[in-house]
C-alpha cells in the first residue's frame, strides 16, 4: 500500500494552484490559508487557557 494513501486523499493538491487577485494583491489560496491559520493560532495562543496554569500561579518569579 502506498504511504501517500492516507492524508493525501483528504485534499487533492494535484492541480494548478488557485489564486485570488484583488487590486495589487495576488495570493494563492494555499498561502492565504496558511496566513489565516497563523493568525488564528496566534489569537488562540493568547486566549486559550494553558493546562495547569492555575496550579503554577504563585510559583517562583
Amino acid at each position: 500500500m502506498s504511504l501517500d494513501w492516507g492524508l493525501g486523499a483528504l485534499i487533492n493538491l494535484n492541480h494548478p494552484g488557485h489564486y485570488i487577485h484583488w487590486h495589487v494583491i495576488d495570493v494563492s489560496v494555499a498561502n492565504l490559508a496558511v496566513m489565516v491559520l497563523m493568525v488564528a493560532a496566534f489569537v488562540a495562543a493568547l486566549f486559550l487557557p494553558f493546562p495547569g496554569r492555575k496550579h503554577r500561579r504563585g510559583e517562583e518569579e
Partner: peptide, 14 residues
C-alpha cells in the same frame, strides 16, 4: 527546574 508563572501560556510554546 521551574519557570516563572507567566510562562504557562500557549504563546511561549511556539
Amino acid at each position: 527546574d521551574t519557570q516563572p508563572a507567566y510562562v504557562a501560556s500557549w504563546i511561549y510554546v511556539f
